[in-house]
């Protein structure tokens, strides 16, 4: 249902459209049961970036790498979700070529790891 408030403008300003990111796009990544990293992170990436590069170069320099569980991750076991649906990312394929477009939320789960002292943090 549309507003009962002031008359809506005919062309709303979509402030975060991909054109406003100077040739790049946003990707969000979250890590379940590791809430020490207080929220999923927002990354600016070239759409042609491969999934493997996202993990190896961007996540490895993000807040994730400061979590004590990071070095213990068995990458073969990691479960991935896009828009909360299970996905199997291909490491060598560009993000845009496997459907991870602008503002896609990727969530990872590491079944063997449950955060600090197993607390989910």
């Amino acid at each position: 249902m549309q507003t009962n408030s002031q008359a809506p403008s005919s062309h709303p300003l979509v402030r975060d459209r991909v054109d406003n990111f100077h040739g790049q796009q946003l990707i969000y990544v979250g890590w379940d049961h590791h809430t020490m990293i207080c929220a999923p992170i927002a990354l600016l990436v070239p759409p042609g970036l491969s999934f493997g590069e996202l993990v190896d170069s961007l996540l490895a320099h993000s807040a994730f790498a400061l979590h004590p569980d990071w070095p213990r991750i068995n990458w073969a076991e990691v479960e991935w979700f896009a828009s909360d649906q299970p996905v199997t990312p291909r490491r060598d394929t560009a993000l845009k070529d496997q459907g991870f477009g602008h503002k896609t939320f990727l969530r990872m789960r590491t079944p063997a790891l449950r955060g600090i002292a197993g607390s989910g943090s």
């Binding site: 979509v14 975060d16 459209r17 969000y28 979250g30 379940d32 049961h33 809430t35 929220a39 999923p40 828009s83 909360d84 477009g101 602008h102 503002k103 896609t104 939320f105 969530r107 449950r114 955060g115 607390s119 989910g120 943090s121």
Partner: peptide, 19 residues
Amino acid sequence: DDPTRTSHRETEHEGEKYH
């Protein structure tokens, strides 16, 4: 039901994702 899992909701509006 799980205080260790981030609450997230998503919708699409006119071709854009919103979280």
